[in-house]
């Protein structure tokens, strides 16, 4: 099948007081149509930078992206973005927030048709009773449901998810992963998700792209996730294969993310890496239901909350 998205030699250099800092170097990735790909890596490894370049919110220093045969320039509603915080406009109801995008994309449709599109997606994410509420009246989880509905309602060529559940408690996170997966199963949008949560990546993705540590982060290894769809979390958790893949991911993050870049694991290279030292406890596959965030990866959401 033809590649739907092609990211070629993507690099990003940030100017800093100490001179230019190359955060991402020669990032290459091809994504098939209808594929769900996750980017996983330590904080500061540039995975969010890659996503924001795809979203058009940030310019690449070198390299380019082709989406559905067209080179991307700037942002646009052909990519639905789910941000880490839902970024809903607080003066609009959930419905109005979704409609803002729907009006923009389906401007040829009648007002009634557009309303139905928004209503459909809000209902699917479980907000049928809350669609006329303002974000302030919604819980954090419900707000992110609106964020998901807003992205899907655009019927985009691609879905971009930037740590979409990073700010939620683990129970809500599980719920929303299911909501996202159900919705995704209906349209099979090509999706790229940035995450630091190993279990989230395994549950949702077809492929997991592991990034090496920054600076000059690049694609380290790619893991195929062979589980059949539609997936059920319980079945995954009962499969020994799941734990093998999980261990492989953690092993990469704890060791090879560093060694591939010639760094020593556990030595602080770049921001936020000092605390990720591999310990025997961290390498042990913990029960995912009880501890979704791996101990070694726990630092990030706490900082952003």
């Amino acid at each position: 099948m033809a590649d739907h998205v092609e990211i070629a030699n993507l690099s990003k250099v940030f100017p800093t007081p100490k001179g230019p800092l190359r955060v991402v170097k020669d990032f290459n990735l091809k994504i098939r149509r209808g594929e769900f790909v996750s980017l996983i890596g330590h904080s500061g490894c540039g995975k969010s930078t890659v996503l924001s370049i795809l979203a058009g919110l940030s310019d690449a220093s070198a390299g380019g992206i082709v989406l559905a045969g067209k080179e991307l320039t700037g942002p646009g509603p052909d990519r639905g973005v789910v941000f880490q915080s839902p970024t809903l406009l607080p003066w609009m109801t959930a419905m109005e927030n979704v409609m803002l995008g729907v009006d923009q994309v389906f401007y040829t449709a009648s007002r009634e048709e557009r309303r139905q599109i928004a209503e459909y997606y809000l209902t699917v994410v479980g907000l049928a009773d809350a669609m006329h509420k303002r974000p302030a009246e919604l819980s954090q989880g419900m707000r992110q449901r609106v964020g998901i509905a807003r992205a899907f309602a655009l019927s985009p060529k691609m879905l971009l998810l930037d740590e979409p559940f990073g700010m939620l408690d683990s129970l809500t996170r599980f719920e929303l992963q299911q909501v996202l997966l159900d919705l995704w199963n209906r349209n099979r949008l090509t999706a790229l998700m940035v995450t630091h949560d190993v279990d989230e990546a395994l549950f949702l993705s077809d492929r997991i792209v592991m990034m090496t540590n920054g600076p000059e982060a690049e694609v380290g290894e790619i893991l195929e996730v062979p589980f059949a769809r539609p997936r059920r979390r319980q079945e995954l958790l009962e499969s020994p294969e799941y734990y093998r893949l999980r261990e492989q991911l953690i092993e990469f993050l704890n060791v090879r993310a560093y060694t591939l870049k010639g760094q020593t694991p556990g030595q602080g290279h770049g921001p936020g890496t000092a605390s990720h030292a591999p310990t025997p406890a961290a390498a042990e596959p913990t029960k995912p239901g009880a501890n979704a965030d791996h101990a070694a990866l726990k630092k990030e959401p706490a900082l952003k909350a």
Partner: peptide, 11 residues
């Protein structure tokens, strides 16, 4: 964040 919403939706 709000301005990004506007940019992403090409308002």
């Amino acid at each position: 964040d709000y301005l990004n919403v506007a940019r992403v939706l090409k308002l």
